[in-house]
Amino acid sequence: MKKWLTGIVVVIILSIPVLFVAWGMTWKWTSFAPGDTDAWIGFWGGYLGAIIGALAAGAIAYFVARRQIDLQAEMDNKREKQFLATQLRIQKYQEAYSLLGDLNREFVVLRMEVLKYIHKEIDLTALRTIDDKCQENIMILNRRINSLEPFIEKLPQAHKTIKANYQIMVDIIYDGYTYPESGKTIALDTSSDTFKSVSQELLMYTMHFCEDINGYLKNEINKLEKES
């Protein structure tokens, strides 16, 4: 609707000079000017044509420039969104890397304390205290890692594997060391060799996934540097 009205207005504006010249040539007081009607029609035609041509060229230049500005703004907006998205991914990768590193350190502490208990370097009370503290810290870290799963593609499956392996280690610790008299039998084998094997597998898997996260982080940083 707006374009239709604009077209009508343009036609009217362009018609006004033509009608004015045609009308003006009928005035008696303009008869003093030398030249016949055809010559003056040619003069005014060229004169008005030049003006209309200049206006048309200016209008085209304006619309072309405006289109270029809009396209540039659109491209800048797209680049800005990509830049912000990359920054967000970097932030999430950094957070995941830090949390997984903290989680693995808790696994290391728990493993070392159980091995100390096996070698009779600490008593049962000390082991239970450390075990409770480590499990509390691990639970908090797992909750925070859960919140990052929607942002990192391979994190949900890797975290699921980490938690499953951790649960196997916890069951061995509970049945074989911290509460062997509870009567519950969750772990089939609570020997020290099995504990060492299971805990070592957990540590290595978590460490390797931390390295993967670090690799993703470096790729995103390189991408950010190219975008900027």
Rank of each mutant, 00 (worst) to 15 (best):
residue 132 D to K: 13
residue 141 L to F: 09
residue 140 I to H: 11
residue 154 K to R: 15
residue 183 G to I: 09
residue 69 I to H: 09
residue 197 S to N: 11
residue 213 I to N: 10
residue 103 L to T: 04
residue 166 Y to A: 02
residue 112 M to E: 14
residue 35 G to S: 01
residue 92 K to D: 10
residue 129 T to K: 10
residue 11 V to H: 00
residue 225 E to T: 15
residue 79 R to I: 10
residue 221 I to K: 14
residue 83 F to K: 07
residue 4 W to K: 11
residue 21 V to S: 07
residue 81 K to L: 14
residue 20 F to R: 15
residue 68 Q to H: 07
residue 167 Q to M: 08
residue 21 V to D: 03
residue 204 M to T: 15
residue 62 Y to S: 04
residue 128 R to V: 10
residue 160 K to M: 03
residue 22 A to L: 15
residue 53 G to E: 14
residue 111 R to G: 05
residue 132 D to E: 11
residue 14 L to K: 02
residue 95 E to T: 10
residue 84 L to Y: 05
residue 116 K to G: 00
residue 92 K to M: 11
residue 102 D to W: 08
residue 138 I to Y: 04
residue 35 G to W: 01
residue 39 A to Q: 15
residue 201 E to W: 00
residue 203 L to Q: 13
residue 73 A to N: 12
residue 9 V to Y: 08
residue 47 Y to I: 00
residue 155 L to W: 03
residue 76 D to K: 15
residue 222 N to G: 12
residue 16 I to A: 03
residue 211 E to M: 12
residue 222 N to E: 15
residue 215 G to L: 13
residue 137 N to I: 06
residue 72 Q to P: 02
residue 136 E to M: 11
residue 184 K to H: 04
residue 98 S to R: 10
residue 152 I to M: 06
residue 223 K to E: 05
residue 20 F to I: 13
residue 46 G to R: 08
residue 37 T to P: 01
residue 193 D to I: 08
residue 17 P to C: 03
residue 137 N to M: 11
residue 158 A to V: 03
residue 218 K to Q: 13
residue 159 H to R: 10
residue 123 D to P: 15
residue 56 A to L: 13
residue 122 I to Y: 01
residue 46 G to N: 14
residue 163 K to T: 12
residue 8 I to N: 09
residue 149 E to G: 03
residue 142 N to V: 11
residue 197 S to H: 06
residue 215 G to P: 06
residue 105 R to Y: 10
residue 217 L to P: 15
residue 143 R to N: 15
residue 122 I to V: 14
residue 203 L to T: 07
residue 207 M to S: 12
residue 138 I to F: 05
residue 167 Q to R: 14
residue 71 L to G: 02
residue 144 R to A: 02
residue 215 G to N: 14
residue 81 K to D: 13
residue 127 L to F: 01
residue 22 A to W: 15
residue 185 T to G: 00
